[in-house]
Design a protein around this nucleic acid. Structure first.
Lengths: 161, 161
DNA sequence: CCAACATGGTTGTCGATGCAACTATTCCCG
DNA sequence: CGGGAATAGTTGCATCGACAACCATGTTGG
């Protein structure tokens, strides 16, 4: 049988292995930092941040899910926990009674404001400062190309608005 | 109070947001493909692959943990599951009686051989083919720089040998 | 030589996530 | 209109991973 899928050559394989290590190490590093300093996971931080920059600090669950690259069940569970902690509030959406709005509370905003500087410092130290300006642009292009292939319709990773 | 940690500027922020999306989307895509086609998680696949290219298809648990960027408890749980499925065997290490060797079984090797082409095809389609040759090198350099900052001693991501 | 400490690994528990099943609304079309 | 399909979201269950506690073996300094 013919080999339909050629092995990865040396360069391909080097890039892939380096990326795999990154995928394994960076998320846990982000979670550790946020957990240690603010008792938030990186995903929870993303949810709160997304709300913060949304009109009226509010979004529909489904829009929030898309904006944070999450599935709706996952988001629902996370919002439940955040709600228990008083950082977020659910309110039924008046225009569509199937829908639910999630809104950042004042306490949530304060938590986020407290957590953000340390998190940015960490991102800067680990990611930004490890690269030069040129690499920063390359990284954006590379990551965008790959996520574009994963999500051709571009449903995810929209900015709040 | 002075702002000790400057915000991210437009380029920094674009790179960071693109990377965050990648960190969210790519791992679940890898897991989905492997789970669907081979009932393996990406991490299990990595463990089996690492063993496959180790002398005598064997490694000590701690070396395997380092090689796969995992903590020892996590690895131990995963090896337990793989062992239950007959893909891996644990044997006490004769030289150091605290240590445990994990060895790929014949069944494990067969499973891996069956799973690999589809996985490589997926990696090629999603990652490699989304980039040109130049970007491949850039990706390796960027990922290596970031993981290097996360893990200055370079303990992780060693190749089997 | 043995008491403390270090190393290698496992286990228990708990929090987090995916998936499937379910409810409730809304949309669409004959 | 009325009924079926689509959409929005929640919930239950099973699995996976982190963390801490633990056991066993090895190492080392007094």
């Amino acid at each position: 049988m013919t080999r339909l899928v050629p092995r990865l050559d040396a360069e391909e394989s080097a890039a892939w292995l380096a990326l795999v290590s990154l995928l394994e190490l960076l998320p846990s590093a982000l979670d550790s930092q946020l957990q240690r300093d603010s008792e938030l996971t990186h995903f929870e931080f993303a949810v709160l941040s997304y709300l913060r920059f949304s009109p009226d600090q509010t979004q529909r669950m489904s829009a929030l899910a898309v904006g944070t690259n999450a599935t709706l069940p996952r988001l629902s569970h996370v919002v439940t926990r955040l709600e228990r902690r008083g950082l977020v509030e659910r309110t039924p959406c008046p225009e569509d009674r199937r829908a639910t709005n999630a809104q950042l509370t004042d306490a949530g905003r304060r938590e986020l404001v407290r957590a953000t500087p340390g998190h940015i410092a960490f991102v800067r130290r680990v990611v930004i400062d490890s690269l030069d300006r040129e690499q920063l642009g390359q990284l954006a292009a590379i990551a965008t190309a790959i996520t574009g292939t994963l999500d051709p319709e571009g449903r995810f990773a929209a900015l709040p608005g």
